[in-house]
Amino acid sequence: MPVFHTKTIESILEPVAQQVSRLVILHEEAEDGNAMPDLARPVQVVKMAVDNLVKVGYDTVNVSEDQILKQDMPPALQRVEEASFLLLDASDMLRADPYSAPARKKLIEGSRGILQGTSALLLAFDESEVRKIIRICKSVLEYLAITEVVDCMEDLVKFVKNLSPVLTKMAKEVDLREKELTHQVHREMLVRSLEEVKALTPVLISAVKIFVSTKSQGAGGVKESQGNRDFVVRKLCDEINEIIRVLQLTTYDEDEWE
């Protein structure tokens, strides 16, 4: 059962999560435990990695225009930094007393804090990346909203020329995101909606073309062709809105686990 919702986050956190769980179990089973080895060096390596993450994190916050990311990332960075101080304390305490129970507790708390803080940080970053994809999806929706003003062939050519690159970009980004997800149901939902969008795009262009032709000929059937065009636009918008909804899902469908 996947715990992390993207393969990238899973590849980063899964190994450390396993080690921390193992340590917690060993700690509980061993009660007082053996003498701890000198952990000063590995703790120092963690501290250096934390210092780097804090620097890179605040650099990202400073240059980002995403207000939610600016709000979400600092608490996660603080969490990681505070956890690293717990590890430093634990290391100092264990050097003085390799059997110290409070030091072992601090070691576990610190490791858990690093895991949770890094997880929160990666989640904040990931959500920010998702918001970028959603912005692209919304730009397609905005573009689809102007379909109704296309009433001559010249407009249609321009419409197709402008819509194609945005749609291609959206399809590429959603496709990449789908491949990143660990949750099978969400992946399938994205694949289905994306395929529907791809299938409906030529149908839309054809529907607009028929509407424009019918209108320019002054013949009957304008209302019907307009209705058909609007129906296809609505279908496309529904699928894109569904993509936006699924992109924001991070919880797991309980039914799948049953």
Partner: peptide, 29 residues
């Protein structure tokens, strides 16, 4: 990308630390 790399480094360093601590405990279990 830099964020991901930095997080990867922390995770690897923490896993190594916890493994070192866990090995000492395991000997007793």
């Amino acid at each position: 990308e830099q964020i991901l790399e930095a997080a990867r480094s922390i995770a690897a360093a923490t896993a190594a630390l916890v493994k070192a601590a866990g090995t000492a405990q395991k000997e007793l279990v």
